[in-house]
């Protein structure tokens, strides 16, 4: 683990990075319409945003606002109805899975017939990496995730938090520069969630992947992200865009006591509150 740098310096570096950084994800006029029994309903309507190299962007919005739909379209898991998505200036073909990005699901998608190390090594295995090299990298990932001693266990023997660590490592071991996360800690209890935040912050602050992180948990967004994109209630539209200028390295508990956290929390809370009321009024 790297030594904690001067927080002021880290923040300045983050700002520098952003000014100079190239755009990794560009979403332009994205739309998604579903047809359910002849009735069309608009899930996502004309959403545009960009994510730059090394940014950690949280996509925040009330349930059902289409934030996961946006993420799935970026991953190519879902065909889009309109607009464009570019990753590194290449247009993503609609509805074709894009293995250049790493994706972490909310639901448990581990392969239950594979052990922890076989799950983590899955991507390397199908990429045809030599066995010895694979074993070395898997062992280091197991250690990094705090799963030492569980390498030979099957997923059903693990707790929800440990399973999600395995899922995270299964994705991170391929060293994706772009990471898409769909409420990955949504199903975990508060304590486990904070531990996962700690793990993710450590990894991200060291490796600086470009992250698009979907969540409806405001505290989670503020803890992790450098930027928050707030979406409106259905149909999902862009509502506001905030920088989260909380210095790094962050600690998931201490971060809640910073002034910036409190200020953004109450501001976004009110903005979110309007959207929740609109959802209920529908």
């Amino acid at each position: 683990m790297m030594a904690a740098p001067n927080p002021g310096l880290a923040r300045a570096r983050e700002d520098d990075d952003r000014a100079a950084a190239r755009t990794r994800i560009a979403v332009q006029g994205l739309a998604k319409r579903f047809n359910t029994s002849g009735r069309e309903f608009v899930a996502v309507d004309d959403v545009s945003f960009e994510v730059k190299q090394g940014e950690f962007v949280a996509l925040l919005g009330p349930s059902g606002c289409g934030k996961s739909t946006i993420l799935n379209m970026v991953a190519g898991l879902l065909p889009r109805s309109g607009g464009r998505i570019l990753i590194d200036e290449d247009t993503i073909e609609t509805g074709t899975v894009n293995p250049r990005v790493g994706y972490v699901f909310q639901r448990d998608t581990l392969f239950p017939w594979r052990t922890v190390e076989q799950n983590i090594g899955y991507g390397l295995e199908i990429a045809g990496l030599p066995k010895a090299e694979r074993a070395r990298r898997v062992a280091s990932a197991v250690e990094k995730a705090g799963l030492t001693g569980f390498a030979q266990s099957f997923p059903r023997m693990l707790s929800g938090g440990m399973r999600q660590r395995v899922a995270l490592m299964r994705t991170l071991i391929l060293e994706p520069e772009i990471l898409l996360m769909d409420e990955p800690f949504g199903a975990l209890d508060t304590h486990t969630k904070l531990e996962m935040h700690k793990t993710l912050l450590e990894i991200w602050e060291r490796e600086r992947q470009t992250v698009l992180f979907v969540t409806h948990d405001l505290g989670e967004a503020l803890t992790l992200a450098s930027r928050i994109i707030l979406l409106s209630a259905r149909p999902g539209r862009l509502k506001e865009d905030f920088d989260v200028a909380i210095p790094r390295p962050r600690d998931p508990v201490a971060v809640r006591e910073t002034a910036e956290f409190g200020r953004l929390y109450s501001h976004i809370w009110h903005s979110l509150g309007e959207e929740f009321r609109r959802t209920r009024a529908d």
């Binding site: 991953a75 898991l77 899975v97 894009n98 293995p99 990005v101 790493g102 994706y103 699901f105 639901r107 998608t109 392969f111 017939w113 899955y122 991507g123 199908i126 990429a127 299964r170 994705t171 391929l174």
Partner: peptide, 29 residues
């Protein structure tokens, strides 16, 4: 077979045949 498991395999770089071999068959077993 769990569609999300298939999606996960694809996102980790699996081809259609690899999905069959590593996800569909073990899951259907």
């Amino acid at each position: 077979v769990d569609r999300d498991q298939i999606a996960a395999a694809r996102l980790l770089g699996a081809s259609e045949f690899t999905v069959l071999r590593t996800v569909v068959i073990p899951s259907a077993l």
